[in-house]
Amino acid sequence: MRTRPNKFDYISKKFEFPGGKIESGESPAETVVREIHEELKMNIEVEKEFLVVNHQYPDFGIEMHSFICSTPTRELELSEHISFKWLDANELEALDWAAADILIVDKLIKEIEQ
C-alpha cells in the first residue's frame, strides 16, 4: 500500500495498492510487474488474478486489475510516493483507503475470515 499527493482532494494521500496504467501491448499482469518495479524498485511474480474493480470517481473512471503476487524480499525503494506499509490482511481496515481500493480490501478480509 502506498500514499501520494494527488490533484483531486478526495484521493490525495489516501492509501492505494501500487500499480498503474496498461501500456500498449501489455497484459494487466505484465503491467503490475512493470509498475511495481518502476514505483518501488521491487521484483514480483504474479501468482493469480484476484479481482477487477470498475469505479467511477467524480472526475474520472478507473478499471483496476488486482493480483496476488509474491516477492523474494520485502525491501523496496519509494520513487513516487510519500509512505508505504506492509500489513497483514487483518490490519487493512485501519487505513484510509481510496474508494476504488475498498472492494479489494473487503475481499482480502473476507478470504482470511473463511
Rank of each mutant, 00 (worst) to 15 (best):
T31I: 10
P18I: 12
I112G: 00
E75K: 09
E26M: 09
A29M: 11
E38F: 13
Q56L: 11
P28I: 01
Q56M: 13
T73K: 14
G61A: 05
E77R: 06
M42G: 03
V32T: 14
K41P: 04
I102M: 15
I68L: 03
E49V: 10
A99M: 05
Q56E: 10
G25S: 00
L78N: 01
Q56V: 08
S27N: 12
K110A: 13
A98K: 00
A94I: 06
R74P: 10
P28M: 01
D59I: 12
I112L: 00
N43D: 09
A100R: 02
I22G: 01
I102G: 07
V52L: 07
K110V: 09
N90G: 13
S24E: 08
E80R: 07
L76T: 01
W97C: 03
T73C: 14
S27D: 08
F15Y: 15
L108T: 03
M64S: 15
G19A: 11
E80H: 05
A98G: 00
I102W: 13
E80V: 02
L87S: 12
E77M: 06
V105F: 09
P58L: 01
R34W: 07
E16V: 10
N54L: 04
S79F: 15
H37T: 11
E91Y: 03
E23I: 01
I104M: 13
I36R: 06
T31E: 12
V46E: 06
G61S: 10
F17P: 02
N54I: 02
I82W: 11
E47K: 12
I68T: 09
E39D: 05
V46D: 06
E91W: 01
D88M: 13
S12R: 00
D88N: 11
H65Y: 08
H55P: 00
E80D: 06
G20E: 11
E39L: 03
D59A: 14
M64V: 14
E35P: 08
S24N: 07
E35R: 14
A100Q: 02
F84Q: 06
E93S: 14
V33G: 03
A100Y: 01
A99D: 02
G61N: 06
H37R: 12
D88C: 12
E38G: 09
H55D: 00
E80L: 09
A100N: 03
N54W: 00
I112R: 00
F17T: 05
A98I: 01
I36G: 09
A89E: 05
C69L: 06
P18Y: 13
M64F: 15
I82G: 13
K13E: 06
I44V: 05
S79A: 13
L76P: 07
L40G: 01
S79E: 15
Y57Q: 05
